[in-house]
Design a protein around this nucleic acid. Structure first.
Lengths: 356, 356
DNA sequence: TTTTGGCACTCTGGTTGTAAGAGTGCTAAT
DNA sequence: ATTAGCACTCTTACAACCAGAGTGCCAAAA
């Protein structure tokens, strides 16, 4: 029999017991023993029988005991199998969906929307929520306007994504007259509207290097100042993602060793690795889960990361998710992350479709 | 002798011993006993003598022992006396001053400046830094511009404080033509430039209620749309202060009980009380220190708060400071907070004076 | 009068031993 | 295939104990 397990996977009963064990462990945090499992499983099997099955599950590497006389708890593979094959996700109540919509709908700029999405995630799950900023390629240029503040300072107003507004002040070396600025803006608005910022920067660079003689004076001036304007826009962006509810993680005693927390928080500030990890989720849609060491990122060792990418115009442009202890209520977190991703995409899209 | 202490304060020797004790406790975190103090104080007194003095200091409520056979540690009054009368502040190295300037100078918008100031504070002290946003009365109007995005949406660009730019999108119920918008902007720029936002809102409200007949058509239209524009600007501001380095607080073991941290962090999110506390520091200039319970704010019980207000045009407009364990290196923190306040004020001022 | 050495006392923190409880693995019986 | 029984292991809590640190007080020394 033991042989059969190893060769052809787990039988019904073993799967059921694994499921109950994981569920119990998730809600308790205590290793679960054979007696408890026998009581809980509803199979009217004696603890002794349960023990045999548990021994098998341990052989398969799905559960493990912290020491001889403690119960068992799921390993990473155990969680993996649980999530992939045994989990029954709870559908969300309509009430929650509506609340999310209520919170996201009325906002009118991307920053607030991302922030709110992250906060919804962290508040609803009592864990840490995070939302990456949309890829820069996804930012499309709508219009630019120049507003002279003084001799040397020009305020650049950049409207993107039909709704989003960015400002910066530039200090051109050459003088630009008010009418030059207006015509430069008109030129740029006509030529580049609808293109994304990355492409535009490439074009500008290209044009700057070209022999000027092919262009008219207006285009040259416009290119010069646009280069300044977009240059700043292209520089390092201040942050890579919005992170909220970090402090919620203090509440989980499995993470609560000060040392772990310190590592985790400094990882949040480090960012690079985390960003890299999240980027890997951008490609495909759907909810992804990294359990503990699966993320390949040390500080997250005791944590799980549940992510989903969000899309604008059917293109995935960013990733959001939740970080919490491995022992989290996946059946609840997964649909929440899924929902948030969809609604975040919708909220960002919505703005570009309806003028209200 | 004991009598004399009580009536006329402490003699030299007792003061010196208190100073050494507090310094020692601050650097060690361990209650300090008579032997250690006798070694450290450089007075060639025996532990027994020291014990007598310590007993007196305890009678005066300046130090206390956690239990019979531990050393003594400062009480709140002890810290108070230490700070007010015994502390010798370390002057800052020029290197640090220059670094602060280097970090603050190049920034060109208030948001970044505040954020950087806070981060400087938290990084240099390894504690939590915070900076309140400038009072709204301190925000002066420089110019406004309207940019029609579509039929129903108008982008409002509001330049304040000579440098700061705010955007919002409004949806007026009535239609405004492009030329109407331009003339409205011109009107507002002419009439209100240099006034602060709060005053302007009051004026607008007042004018709206007046009988319209006294004004020309242009002024009426301008007032209508300006009301919309400033209305949004006047609404709740998103945040009250910038807080950085909260996580640094995890490193202090006297705060490190998860429970304390939770209370502290939820206090940071609560904000109201903290804001209220900070507001009380706005009135007068100079560094202020609240030790433990002195702040009258429960969650800060084990913490000290070191604040200073910063000024624009010689008016105090905001407060910044540092939150850390009662047992902090005041002689270093105080000058740091002081410096940051001055430089922050300068950085904010600077922008409005020199165009570069 | 001030300082000091001496001494008894107290409290903490670490170590050790012990007993109870929980859970296991194995074997033999059902 | 399942189960009862049993010996074994490991954790946890508790008590006892000891060493160390520090105190307060008193009487002697300066």
């Amino acid at each position: 029999m033991n042989e059969i397990y190893k060769l052809s996977g787990l039988n019904e009963r073993a799967q059921h017991l694994l499921k109950v064990l994981v569920e119990r462990y998730i809600s308790d945090g205590q290793p679960v023993g054979s007696r408890a499992l026998s009581r809980e499983a509803g199979l009217s099997l004696s603890p002794a029988t349960i023990r045999n099955v548990m021994a098998d599950l341990e052989d398969l590497g799905l559960i493990t005991a912290p020491h001889t006389s403690a119960g068992r708890m799921p390993t990473v593979s155990g969680y993996r199998f649980f999530i992939d094959s045994l989990l029954t996700v709870k559908p969300l109540q309509n009430e929650i969906i509506h609340q999310f919509q209520r919170d996201l709908e009325p906002l009118d700029n991307a920053g607030d929307i991302l922030e709110t999405a992250s906060r919804l995630l962290s508040d609803m799950t009592h864990m840490a929520g995070l939302v990456t900023l949309p890829r820069r390629e996804a930012v499309t240029f709508r219009m630019i306007e120049f507003l002279p503040l003084s001799e040397q300072r020009i305020l650049v107003i950049l409207v993107t994504n039909e709704q989003e507004v960015q400002n910066r002040i530039i200090h051109p070396t050459k003088q630009f007259s008010a009418s030059e600025l207006t015509s430069a803006a008109n030129y740029l608005n006509a030529v580049y509207a609808g293109k994304d910022l990355v492409t535009i920067r490439e074009c500008l660079l290209h044009e700057l290097q070209q022999t000027r003689e092919q262009m008219n004076q207006e285009a040259i001036r416009a290119t010069e100042i646009a280069d300044l304007a977009f240059q700043v826009s292209g520089q390092k962006r201040k942050k890579d993602f919005v992170l909220t509810g970090e402090m919620n993680l203090l509440d989980f005693d499995e993470l609560a060793s000060m040392e772990r927390m310190r590592i985790l928080f400094s990882a949040f500030r480090q960012k690079e690795d985390l960003v890299h990890l999240l980027d890997r989720c951008l490609e495909s849609s759907g909810v992804k889960i990294f359990i503990g060491e699966e993320s390949g990122y040390e500080p997250l060792e005791q944590c799980s990361l549940v992510t989903a990418s969000y899309a604008i115009d059917d293109h995935n442009v960013g990733v959001l998710g939740v970080i919490g202890p491995t022992r989290m209520k996946y059946e609840r977190v997964i649909p929440l992350v899924d929902l948030t991703a969809k609604l975040l995409g919708a909220a960002l899209n919505h703005k570009s479709l309806s003028p209200s």
